[in-house]
Amino acid sequence: MATIDQLDLSPPHAPKEHAIEAFEHVEHKIKAAIIASRHDWDKHEPKMWALARSTSDHDLVHWTVKDDLVVVRVAETSYGAIILGKIRIRAIKLDSAGELVPGPVEKDEHGKIKVEMKHGEIDDEKLGFIFVRVHDSPGDGIENVKFHSLFTDEVHDSEGHETGVYRAIQMNSKPLEFFNE
């Protein structure tokens, strides 16, 4: 297993065709892992998914790779490519401090989750994100792509000390860095 010291991780960038195809190949596994993680953590550490506390499972995974995979980073290894992705969760509305904005998820007449727009684009600064790691083994096509993990971040207090609280949902301002969970 690679460590950050062994990797040459690309700068964050918009996903290209191969990354989109790779994430689409495992989209159902990512969504299943999100729901399973939430249910598991809610049993013994509900703070992990606290930002989704008023969001249904359906709304939590109501995203598509094509529309909501907004940033990727890639590192080549001897055993294939590691692809990190930042996926927008439209149902999680956050304030400037990264705290949950109370209230129900608003939907339009077609059942799509409404989001705030800024200059004609989705205002990502007010939404939550999930960071995902996938692995693309050497070989032809995307059939070798496997879901690896979801990122969880330890919350630090105002002085930078660890609090023992972890978050599965991140703010857009959180950089997409290597993780090996």
Rank of each mutant, 00 (worst) to 15 (best):
H110F: 12
H58I: 14
E162K: 12
I82C: 04
I30T: 05
K93H: 09
A52P: 04
V72C: 07
I89L: 15
V72F: 09
A91T: 03
V145D: 03
K112Q: 06
F131S: 08
D40Y: 15
H135E: 00
K29N: 14
V145S: 06
A50F: 04
G128R: 09
E45Y: 00
E154F: 08
I30Y: 09
L94F: 10
N144Q: 10
W41L: 10
D124T: 11
F151R: 08
F131W: 02
T64Y: 07
D67Q: 12
I113N: 00
A91H: 02
D42K: 11
R88D: 01
K126W: 04
M48G: 00
P138D: 09
H62P: 00
A19Q: 13
F129Q: 10
A22P: 13
H25R: 12
S54R: 02
I113F: 02
E109H: 10
V71N: 04
K43Q: 14
E121F: 12
K107W: 07
P102E: 14
H156F: 05
T152P: 00
H119I: 04
E99T: 09
T64F: 09
I122D: 03
I92N: 01
I142Y: 01
T64K: 14
E24C: 12
S158T: 14
H18I: 13
P138Y: 11
P104Q: 15
E45K: 03
E24R: 15
K146C: 11
E99G: 07
F129V: 15
E24H: 10
W41Q: 13
A75Y: 06
E109D: 11
D42P: 02
G139L: 05
L127Q: 06
I92L: 11
I92G: 03
I122G: 04
S137Q: 05
S137M: 08
E121K: 10
H58Q: 14
R90T: 04
R73W: 03
S149P: 03
V145R: 08
T152N: 06
K107N: 11
K118N: 04
I142M: 07
E76N: 09
S54P: 00
E21T: 00
E17I: 02
N144P: 01
L84R: 04
D67G: 01
G85Y: 06
I87P: 02
S149F: 04
F151K: 13
